[in-house]
């Protein structure tokens, strides 16, 4: 079961700062434990929606660290806007969470 996620979305005048923390091992597939390769396991796709409209669609790979942090800056926005962020990894596992712009 994927670990927790946390979003912080703040209105900063003419734009909104969105910051998201995600729990994920982000295995590259090149690390060895006791001589055995740890299979690749990483987030492939991240989608950010504001009030149901997709504003960021990201394709990601192994170069990103474990428990990654992403920050986005979106034009406009209002307090209370619903921000939804979801990810899908290479094993088909996924997680999503939402928060309101503060």
């Amino acid at each position: 079961m994927p670990g927790p996620m946390k979003i912080r979305a703040t209105l900063k005048g003419s734009y909104t700062d969105i910051r998201v923390l995600m729990s994920h091992p982000m295995e590259t597939g090149q690390r060895k434990v006791k001589g055995k390769l740890v299979p690749a396991h990483f987030i492939e796709n991240i989608t950010v929606k504001v009030n149901g409209k997709t504003v960021v669609e990201a394709q990601t790979s192994q170069s990103i660290s474990r428990n990654p942090v992403f920050a986005f800056r979106v034009k406009g926005g209002n307090k209370g806007d619903k921000v939804e962020i979801g990810w899908v990894d290479n094993k088909g596992e996924s997680n999503k969470t939402e928060a309101a712009v503060a």
């Binding site: 670990g3 946390k6 910051r19 923390l21 995600m22 729990s23 428990n67 942090v69």
Partner: peptide, 12 residues
């Protein structure tokens, strides 16, 4: 410190 995964540990 600005985007620390430490918050994920707090949640868990």
């Amino acid at each position: 410190a600005e985007g620390s995964p430490v918050e994920l540990f707090e949640l868990q």
